[in-house]
Amino acid sequence: MIYFDRVSKHYDLRGGGKKHVLRNVSGIIRPGDALGILGRNGAGKSTLVRMLAGVEHPNSGRIERRMTVSWPLAHGVGLQNSMSGADNARFIARIYNQPIKKVLDFVEDFAELGPYMDMPAKTYSVGMMGRLLLGLSFAVDFDCYLIDEVTATGDQRFVARAQALLAEKTRGRSLVLVSHVPEHLKMYCRTAAVLNEGSLTFFEDVDEAVATYKAL
């Protein structure tokens, strides 16, 4: 369960002034929820996800995590470019207290990097990077996965595999997917919310949320 209560976040702008990204946002994400958050670019979706993941702190309000939460899965984040995929996997395994062998095997199997597994990550293509990242994040069992537009990459076959894996991994667990593409939400999510002008509006029905989002 992630519980956030009256969370506000703003950034200081150069030359004074503040940009408010979130204003007094509250909510609960329970085990089993599959929540999609829609918002335009720059609406503060990534900030919200990062705060849910606990890597960024709100200016006011509080966020409590009572389950294991993944790091914000976005393109290329959390990886060290100069290290190989295997070394990245070992590092993730160590800090998330997972058996190294299990993580390595899973990533090798899922990401299909082949010999690239031992090459520095900076030599990877965008697709390889996405596969590695997804493989890494699903190699660790979290109660809640936070995904920031990650499903947009990869070829058809990989997308299908990723969907299957995502469905399998998030069964009985939670998923928070942040996107500006309504179709992705319809694919994975059961409830949805729209982030606009610093406030978050929840909808029981994804279609309703998409309609509201499109009307903005």
Binding site: V55, P72, V77, G78, Q80, I95
Partner: peptide, 9 residues
Amino acid sequence: MTLMYHRQV
């Protein structure tokens, strides 16, 4: 900075 995406780091 990229490590900052892992909460426990």
